[in-house]
Design a protein around this nucleic acid. Structure first.
Length: 590
RNA sequence: GCGGUUGUAGUCUAGCUCGGUAGGACUCCAGCUUCCCAAGCUGGCUACCCGGGUUCAAAUCCCGGCAACCGCACCA
């Protein structure tokens, strides 16, 4: 990952300003502060929790509602077998060595790889063997040339025991995907045994990072949204493709990357598929939806890109992978979603490890009829001749290809099987018609996977703006954590009572509302802007007379006047994007 | 994990050299004032990261821990 746009002075850095604002206004802050804190854990406050819900709702809207994906919710802890089968136990456990002098740490397998010992071999070694190999090849610290200390293994999964028996190892899931694979049979049943279908799980995942930094970007406990979409590899067409085929995807191709170049090539979804840049229609579809998701939480297309992963960067299960990245002020390009074509890898692994059949049955459109030559030993005739060996002889005959037996009988009238001369009359040769009506296979999977905490951070960063020296969080209206703030111009003369009535009415109509009566009206507008409150409704003395209010737009600071009676309908249209701010009421001259 | 820097109210910070338990600004809360963009006045709440040591006395000096920031490493 490149790390341009780096800034040495933390002051001029958006992330510092956002973290400060987030703490102060209650979007998020480091957890467990009263005990000194613990790195890599975060608590979302009232505004943050709501913003996160709204971002996740957007994801559901694009992925779940529009394409009929099933959503599940399963457990964070899983028995050891699950992650042994998936390959995570092997891949999350890295042998490390530390230089005794300069204390730099290295991956032992990487060091041995330079001595032509493949990572497959090191995976099988225990720590003592790794130590011996390091000594044998005289591997020393590449930085200072000093010898290494004892190798250790670092497991990035959280390990625990389930129940009181220490033998029952459990792991905190490092991704939400495995729950879906493990439950495949039930889900397939619920889907009434039809492909394609997808399942989504949004939930917490755990990775015991060595050193989490970068705030919300890398956490030890975080929210992941894994979508596993199952389809028949022989019918890979996506029926919604026309909805996205003109969507432009900015892609940084492997070939470009190998030239040490970061130039982006723009493809429409259609082009990318035609030119086989993206090999799977569904994967292209999800990439287009992912691009739209980021657009809708405030990231323009020119600040997004998809990176085609190089062979050695791809996870063990994937044949083609793209990472979706967004340009972030502090850290450059940051991954927000991964799009992997996982083939039948995961279901295959769980099938093998559990012994449970996870194939699906597909009926052919036209049953395949075939005529097969059958050679059947006639045991009644073999018995009297071979006595005790008869069964063995019969089995040996059945082992032979039918064609070979038939040809020999035709030609010689007999065949030599395991030293026995078998005569024509001792077997029955016939043609048998068989009808194959279908077959069983393991579905293929494309997986879009999102980091929800990163999405939230990015929504905040792209909303962050400064207008007249004030911070304004200009969220897209569909994700604003508070939709409507209600303010009495004065907190007396019945204006406050009226304002509370209006707030209550709007809350009952289903809007996210806030009420604020302290300080001057200007101060309250400023507070609201900083929290990203989309609209402000102010109750003034005219309201008492004619039941109208002013509505203020957070982004333009313009105001219009509308009747309270019309508010619910108007606001509903506005928040669904079916009305503009100017449509909400009559202009007010300022 | 390693090395460097740092840790004082919600936020920004003064005080630390040379020990005598904290001062400001903004925010927040209450009251007054104020008829639409952080106005003003009065009052109020709130802090020395945690633990240990030295000392009559520690925000200050020493040791240990934790956390943050910057580099290194790590990020299946």
């Amino acid at each position: 990952m490149s790390s341009e746009a780096k800034c040495s002075k933390p002051q001029c850095d958006k992330s510092v300003a956002i973290n400060e604002l987030a703490r102060r206004r209650g979007f998020f802050w480091p957890s467990f502060e009263i005990y000194g804190g613990s790195g890599g854990f975060v608590t979302y406050g009232p505004l943050g929790a709501r913003l996160k819900q709204n971002v996740e709702a957007k994801l559901r809207e694009l992925m779940v509602k529009k394409i009929g994906i099933y959503e599940i919710e399963s457990s964070i802890i899983a028995p050891g077998k699950v992650f042994e089968a998936s390959g995570h136990v092997a891949h999350f456990k890295e042998p490390m060595v530390e230089c005794q002098k300069c204390h730099t740490r290295f991956r032992a397998d990487h060091l041995l790889e330079e001595k032509n010992i493949s990572s497959k071999e090191t995976e099988k070694m225990n720590l003592e063997e790794i130590k011996q190999e390091l000594i044998r090849h005289q591997v020393v610290c590449p930085d200072c040339g000093s010898p290494f200390g004892e190798p250790t293994r670092y497991l990035t999964m959280f390990e625990t025991t389930i129940g009181p028996y220490s033998g029952a190892v459990g792991y905190g899931r490092p991704e939400a995907a495995q729950n879906i694979f493990v439950e495949f049979n039930r889900l397939y049943n619920v889907a009434r045994e039809k492909l394609p279908f997808g399942a989504l799980q949004i939930g917490h995942a755990l990775r015991n990072e060595i050193s989490p930094r970068q705030g919300l970007i890398r956490l030890r406990e975080f929210t992941i949204a894994d979508l596993e979409f199952f389809f028949d590899p022989e019918e890979p067409d996506c029926q919604y493709l026309t909805e996205v085929e003109d969507e432009v995807l900015p892609i940084l191709l492997c070939d470009t990357r190998l030239k040490e170049c970061e130039d982006i090539t723009n493809f429409t979804v259609k082009e990318a598929l035609d030119k086989s840049i993206i090999k799977c229609q569904w994967q292209a579809f999800f990439m287009a939806q992912a691009k739209r998701l980021l657009n809708q939480i405030g990231v323009p297309t020119e600040k997004q890109r998809f990176i085609e992963k190089l062979t050695w960067e791809k996870a063990h299960y994937s044949t083609q992978s793209f990472d979706q990245e967004v340009l972030v002020d502090r850290w450059g390009w940051v991954e927000v979603s991964g799009h992997a074509y996982r083939t039948d890898y995961d279901l295959g692994c769980h099938m093998k490890a559990s012994g449970v059949d996870m194939t699906v049955y597909k009926e052919f459109k036209n049953p395949i009829e075939s005529e097969e030559l059958i050679v059947k030993p006639i045991v009644a005739k073999l018995g009297p001749v071979y006595k005790g060996d008869a069964a063995k002889v019969a089995a040996a005959i059945a082992e032979l290809p039918a064609r070979q037996v038939a040809d020999a009988m035709e030609k010689d009238g007999s065949i030599l099987v395991e030293g026995y001369q078998i005569l024509k009359e001792q077997v029955e040769i016939s043609k048998q018609k068989t009808i194959v009506r279908g077959k069983r296979f393991i579905p293929h999977v494309v997986e879009p996977s999102f980091g929800c905490d990163r999405l939230l951070y990015i929504a905040l960063e792209y909303a962050y703006g400064i207008k007249n020296d004030r911070v304004v969080l200009g969220f897209p209206r569909t994700i604003a954590p508070i939709q409507v703030g209600v303010y009495p111009l004065m907190s007396r003369d019945g204006l406050d009572t009226k304002a509370k009535e209006v707030q209550r009415m709007l809350a009952c109509e289903g809007f996210m509302t806030d009420y604020d009566e302290t300080g001057s009206i200007g101060r309250r507008y400023a507070r609201a802007d900083e929290a990203g409150v989309q609209l402000g409704i102010t109750i003034d003395y005219d309201t008492i007379d004619d039941n109208t209010v002013t509505i203020r737009d957070r982004d333009s600071w313009q105001q219009v006047r509308a009747s309270i009676t019309n508010l619910p309908k108007l606001l509903q249209k506005y928040f669904k994007g079916k009305a503009n701010f100017a449509d909400l009421g009559s202009q007010i001259k300022s």
